[in-house]
């Protein structure tokens, strides 16, 4: 898109997009550290991850403040308006991603013992990898204003859901085998759920990128199925 007649306006929008990118990078790193801490039972890393999450909250507030100022000063219209709206929502999703990672890190400290099953750890790692790929890809799509990529990314969330469902079943089996596993498995279950939710946030971001570029909402034709096996047509 060509530039605004008022060049400071372009500058302001570019800075907001830059802050989103910063949030995205930070969120990715927090997620990956939280899961590393979980797999290796690294309590120090877990604690530092919890501390770093604060920066995401700060960035969210900064982006909100900048957006409000641009709205007040420039009265954005058309694609600019949608970009500002999308930036606000995306920043919120990224802040939530940080919260999910923080939850995982807190459980590392609560579990405080080696993981019983190598296989479980691999499952959680794999799911995290997929969620992080989704997050990276969707932030790229935001930067490039690529609606087609956003549609593709949204379609890929099903894979994360599927892994989550199989992890869920596996954890149930362990718990049934030996009640002494229940505490650790319950913690792991919540960790897996948190990572699965990161995938959902990436999906939200994809929908916002699509809206930002096209001005239309994607049809909500994704079937939603969670570990309960009950399809949810209403949830957002």
């Amino acid at each position: 898109m060509s530039e605004h007649t008022v060049s400071a306006y372009d500058q302001e929008l570019t800075e907001i997009a830059g802050k989103i990118a910063e949030m995205g990078g930070l969120a990715e790193s927090i997620v990956s550290n939280a899961v590393s801490a979980l797999i290796t039972q690294d309590l120090v890393l877990a604690q530092s991850t919890i501390d770093r999450d604060q920066r995401l909250d700060d960035l969210l507030h900064e982006i909100e403040m900048r957006n409000v100022q641009v709205i007040a000063r420039r009265q954005p219209m058309g694609q600019d308006l949608r970009e500002i709206m999308a930036a606000t929502r995306i920043a919120n999703d990224l802040e939530r991603v940080g919260d999910m990672a923080k939850n995982v890190a807190k459980r590392v400290i609560a579990i405080d013992s080696d993981l019983k099953s190598k296989k479980l750890a691999i499952g959680v790692e794999h799911m995290t990898e997929l969620a992080l790929n989704q997050l990276k890809a969707v932030l790229d799509a935001f930067t490039r204003k690529d609606a087609e990529a956003a549609v593709r990314i949204r379609g890929q969330d099903a894979e994360i859901d599927a892994i989550y469902t199989s992890l869920f079943r596996e954890l149930l089996t362990y718990m049934m085998e030996d009640p002494r596993n229940i505490t650790q498995c319950a913690h792991l279950l919540f960790c897996a759920k948190n990572i699965e939710r990161i995938g959902d946030h990436a999906t939200n971001i994809a929908e916002n990128v699509f809206y930002m570029v096209k001005g239309d909402h994607l049809l909500d034709d994704r079937p939603r199925m969670d570990e309960t096996g009950v399809e949810d047509k209403e949830s957002v």
Partner: peptide
């Protein structure tokens, strides 16, 4: 229209 309403007409 897009260029005009978003302030991009030079």
């Amino acid at each position: 229209t897009q260029d005009y309403i978003t302030g991009r007409f030079g």
